[in-house]
Nucleic acid binder design. Structure first.
Lengths: 325, 325
DNA sequence: TTGAAAGCGTTACCAG
DNA sequence: CTGGTAACGCTTTCAA
């Protein structure tokens, strides 16, 4: 590997001049040309470690997610990357597959691998664990989608309780009284908020809550699929189902259709995420549409503020979901 | 940020002793204890840049993918991470969303951000571009899933042509003569191989190839959905469809079901990936099952070999797909 | 505009 | 087992 000294020697100038050239400083035209040629000839690349040692930054941002395959996170990351790229930051993504040990370990790594900031969607970490791991880590962290209760840092959330209230209420308005709900892990803050919206909508309509209409599992296809099987076995079937995640929705619909259950005639389904997909269905599946791009952009912006030196109180962004169609 | 010197001072030993302690060397028990306490007290963390500067490695591996939301890649990455984690390497993932500029740019960044090795699923990069970008980059690179023709590095592929031959042939055996195929971008090596299998199966059975039964688009839901719409408009509809990607499969099925087309009675569907999901359907959807975990593990192993100093000829692993059920 | 020199925080070597 | 010292490659400062 060629070093800056090699380039300096070949170009006939001092290393510091090379450095200046690389970093956009003023260099006499003929020197610039010589340097350019030397760099090309030697195929010189700045050593990121050496540079980082001085600057203590990398121009990179870590993103730690439970599951990078969820379309929701995919869109969040895409929007986030775009904003960060404009400021010359790159994203390094890591996912922990809903595994507590891996979540801890990946967080730890992220904090010590030299990134400048972190965007984190937590799942199973306690406030204490988080504090302990991140105390003095020296980089700004933004929570997205979920939050660890008691952790006060910049956070981007959506209005879960409110939008679920509206969604469930719209089912109630259509005359449904037996409305099931299928959610991801109960312990996750976001799932709790969504449950709150569900309960409140039922309560306000004077509908009793039935324990056997509430399912929680993972945010995956199997959970939706199995819940459908279970629901069909009930003596009194629900007439509508609210699914709080895309994979759950697809799993549910697949199971229902296989069994010849007509949607929405026999079971009305109200989903979450992947509007493009759901609006293509016939009739279009009503869904809660999270502002995924906005979430990504907001998270990026909150982080950039901190990277630019902003040092105010933690900010919480509550973004509004839409209901489609 | 506390440095190793601060720790040394507090513990009453030399910095080099701290270093040895951190890196698992032998240190007298009482010193070890003092060091442990000092590290805790100062909340000392090794500076990754300083360490990297010496070691020129990070114990991290980059993974560059077209689309991290595809379940196929999700599984590959999961298996890969597991193998790498055992050897204390972490994965840093980046995806370029089937965008050429971003692909180039992310590759460039990956090569200069200090990772020790790279796993790369290419899409739109020419052999020349690749050579130019990676010449002398100093880290081993493994291609997965796809390959840039003419690039000779370690590569992990599946037997695309063969398995597609078998899949299409199984449709032919069931009596189908009009078999459509829906693939991702035509330019991608893997899609080409799959087309070869398709053509060969038809040819061997003496079935004429029909241009209007061949669709290529993106590896996404919309491509599957639209292809279904298009196919239904044909005067002579296909009796079977082979979809070469999960999102395409789901898109196709969704469109078909919305239109009341029965699967498999009216259109037989043969899919790709996500066996768990497809085998849950009723009747189970036959699919090509790529050995995603094995791909990830193999890629990790090839890379680890290189990281451990192996310097032999490029190796190409052709893994065998299964057909399920 | 340029260059010499002093770090940045860590590790490796070698003498003690 | 320990510690002083010399790198690692780059940036920054300051004087020329």
């Amino acid at each position: 590997m060629a070093t800056i000294k090699d380039v300096a020697k070949m170009a006939g100038v001092a290393p510091s001049t090379i450095s200046k050239y690389i970093n956009g400083g003023n260099v006499r035209a003929e020197n610039a040309e010589a340097i350019r040629r030397a760099i090309a000839a030697l195929d010189y690349h700045v050593d990121p470690f050496a540079r980082g040692l001085k600057a203590q930054r990398n121009r990179s941002v870590g993103v730690l997610l439970p599951d990078m395959t969820a379309p929701f996170y995919g869109n969040v990351v895409m929007a986030m990357s775009r904003v960060l790229r404009e400021r010359d930051y790159h994203c390094l993504i890591s996912s922990y597959g809903a595994n507590h040990g891996v979540e801890r370990d990946n967080l730890k790594f992220m904090l010590t691998c030299g990134i400048d900031g972190l965007v984190y969607a937590p799942e199973d970490l306690s406030s204490e664990e988080f504090q302990e791991l991140t105390a003095n880590c020296g980089i700004p962290i933004v929570q997205i989608d979920r939050m660890i209760q008691g952790v006060e840092i910049d956070t981007v959330l959506v209005d879960n309780a409110e939008v679920v209230y509206r969604a469930v209420n719209s089912l109630i308005q259509k005359g449904h009284k037996r409305i099931a709900i299928i959610t991801g892990p109960k312990s996750v803050y976001t799932a709790k908020e969504r449950m709150v919206g569900y309960f409140r909508a039922l309560a306000d309509a004077g509908i009793y809550y039935h324990d056997d209409l509430v399912f929680s599992g993972q945010n995956d296809f199997a959970t939706g699929y199995r819940s459908c099987q279970a629901l069909l076995k009930l003596k009194e079937r629900p007439t509508a189902v609210f699914t709080t995640n895309y994979d759950i929705t697809i799993g549910f619909i697949t199971a229902a259709r296989e069994r010849g259950i007509h949607i929405p005639e026999e079971v009305d389904v109200f989903g979450f995420d992947s509007v493009e997909t759901c609006s293509m269905m016939k009739p279009p599946l009503p869904v809660v549409q999270q502002p995924d791009h906005l979430i990504g952009m907001t998270a990026a912006q909150l982080l950039l503020d901190r990277l630019d030196g902003f040092d105010g109180e933690p900010r919480i962004a509550r973004l509004t979901c839409k209901i489609t169609p």
